[in-house]
Amino acid sequence: MINQLKDVVTGSAEIAKAMGVTLKYFFKKPVTHQYPDEPVEVYPRFRGRHVLKRYDNGLERCIGCALCAAACPTDCIYVEASENTDEKRYSPGERYASTYDINMLRCIFCGYCAEACPTEAIVLEHDFALAEYNRWDAIYPKERLLEPHDPDYIVLRSDEEFKLSETWGKK
């Protein structure tokens, strides 16, 4: 009997303690996100989905040189180049990419393509939502890769934590 009473008291204390924790977090800012209703914060150097950049005047930066494809360790980029004409101009200069496909299932997001790019046309940006219902849809054509690509479910983390230069080595 005594033991049973003891159990009730300690049990209640434990529950109260646990509920205390719950109560504590009830008033704290939640760590979970209401994704995709709420945007997700990512670090600026997070390597996500590729984006093909444009110049300010709207011309594509990509010149179709295929150095990204050459640098790619998984061979997931396929580029076909064509010649710009004065009537149909896609990029400055003579050459542009008429086909630019990336197989996102193969990509390992190493960023070598961005490193190889002589015009900084391909950049690994922050989109991570790459699920598809069909495997073939995971091959992103140029139209999907080109700017603008600003998904509303991602925001760039711009907080103080990321000021590396100030905090490095001091903590």
């Binding site: 040189c65 295929a66 076909e80 180049a81 010649e83």
Partner: peptide, 9 residues
Amino acid sequence: FRFGARAWE
């Protein structure tokens, strides 16, 4: 051939 492919491809 102009811009047909890169040599290594």
